[in-house]
Simulated scan of single mutants.
Amino acid sequence: MSTNLIGLDTAKTEQLASDLNELLANYQIFYMNVRGYHWNIKGDNFFELHAKFEELYDDLLLKVDEIAERILTLGHRPAHSYSVYIERSSVEERRNVSGGKVAVGQILESFAKLIRKQRDILSTAGEAEDEGTVSLMSDYISQQEKTVWMYRSYLGQ
């Protein structure tokens, strides 16, 4: 078995890096969607949602950087072009959304995709004995489960 500089199996880190690049693509598209919601939101809850969307996109941007740095730590290169992000993301690009409930519903759909992908990566990282990626995914999942509950509560679900 060949290992990288941090002692992980090179073949397993290659798979993890590929999975993390797909996750990175999803985060980048989600981030841009939320920026659009923030800029274009209208209606009774403008002030509340405008601030909430800013809080969310700030968090997503931090996670984008953490994921890219994790890929680099594993010895691979993070994707860094929107053409790749569009191609690899299961989170759909959203345009011209100004309704609060529509935006929140789309945010919930995106979180569902992220959490599902992160659970898959968590499992793969566990099998590879990659504690760094396990820890990152575990933190994201627990934070996002609470966020999903809050957004669902906003929608009355």
Rank of each mutant, 00 (worst) to 15 (best):
E22Y: 01
D9L: 05
G132R: 04
V148H: 11
T13D: 11
F53N: 05
V91R: 08
L122A: 08
Q144G: 01
I121R: 03
M150G: 07
A79L: 14
S89Y: 02
L23A: 12
N40V: 00
E55S: 09
A103C: 02
E55R: 03
K42P: 00
G132S: 10
W149P: 03
K52Q: 13
V91F: 08
Y140M: 11
V91Y: 08
L61Q: 13
L49S: 03
S83A: 14
N33V: 02
L114F: 05
F47D: 11
F53K: 02
S138W: 02
D59K: 08
T124H: 13
A11R: 12
G126A: 10
M150E: 06
M137P: 01
L8Y: 11
S123C: 01
I41G: 00
S18K: 13
L62V: 10
Y31T: 12
V134W: 07
Y154E: 06
G100A: 08
F47R: 14
Q118P: 01
D120I: 10
D58Y: 01
V91D: 04
L72Q: 12
G100Q: 00
F47W: 13
E14K: 14
L20R: 06
Q106R: 10
M150R: 09
L16Q: 05
S18A: 11
A128E: 10
M32C: 06
K146N: 07
K117R: 13
T147M: 01
D65L: 02
V102Y: 01
K63L: 13
M137T: 03
T3Q: 13
Q144M: 09
D130V: 03
E87S: 15
M1N: 11
G36F: 01
A103H: 00
E127C: 08
E93G: 10
D130G: 01
V104L: 05
D130Y: 04
N45E: 09
S110T: 03
G43V: 02
L74Q: 08
A112M: 04
R95I: 04
W39S: 06
S135Q: 10
I86V: 15
M1Y: 11
R35K: 15
I121G: 04
T133M: 07
A79Q: 14
